[in-house]
């Protein structure tokens, strides 16, 4: 029963101020869901560990999807796993974001042609916000992905799209 979210068409000074505060909070407290699918997860763990330190940006792991904001799809998405990923994504509370990490989840990676069991890109099941290329990406690349996601969140709005802008 949100009273603000997608309820107004026109912006005004209160909404703009509130919006920037909410966006600031969202972008600075991205809690990611704790799960990894393949070798990219090792790099994800390395990013959270001492040397690269996710926590500098306020990014911490949460084990329950109910409390998580961002899902890092780290690794090969098999056909079997795809339905689980969709379910986990749906069970996250909104607002939620997805980072696709590594070539496998971006487009199928090395399994692109002959991988009968691999989904050709996780964006076929869940909407992806940021793609991080690499096989696996280095921790710096993942951090860069998070910075890109923060940029994207800054531009978000709580307004509903006007009739003319909708397709």
């Amino acid at each position: 029963m949100g009273m603000l979210d997608k309820k107004y068409h026109d912006s005004n000074i209160i909404i703009v101020g509130l919006e920037s505060a909410l966006n600031w909070a969202r972008k600075n407290s991205l809690w990611y869901e704790q799960f990894g699918l393949a070798c990219c997860a090792i790099e994800m763990m390395a990013t959270a560990a001492s040397r690269y330190d996710f926590d500098r940006f306020g990014i911490i792991p949460r084990s329950s999807p109910r409390q998580a904001d961002v899902m890092i799809v780290a690794g090969t998405v098999t056909m079997k796993m795809a339905s689980r990923i969709l379910r986990l994504y749906e069970q996250m509370s909104e607002p939620r974001y997805v980072i696709s990490m590594g070539s496998c989840s971006n487009c199928g990676g090395p399994y692109w042609e002959h991988g009968y069991h691999v989904l050709k890109g996780v964006d076929k099941v869940v909407p992806v916000d940021v793609y991080v290329p690499g096989c696996p990406p280095r921790p710096e690349a993942l951090l860069e992905g998070f910075l890109k996601l923060q940029e994207k969140i800054t531009g978000e709005t709580i307004l509903e799209k006007k009739e003319s802008e909708q397709e």
Partner: peptide, 12 residues
Amino acid sequence: ADLLKLIQKEDI
């Protein structure tokens, strides 16, 4: 920031 973010999280 965490508090403000938790305020806007959906309640399930």
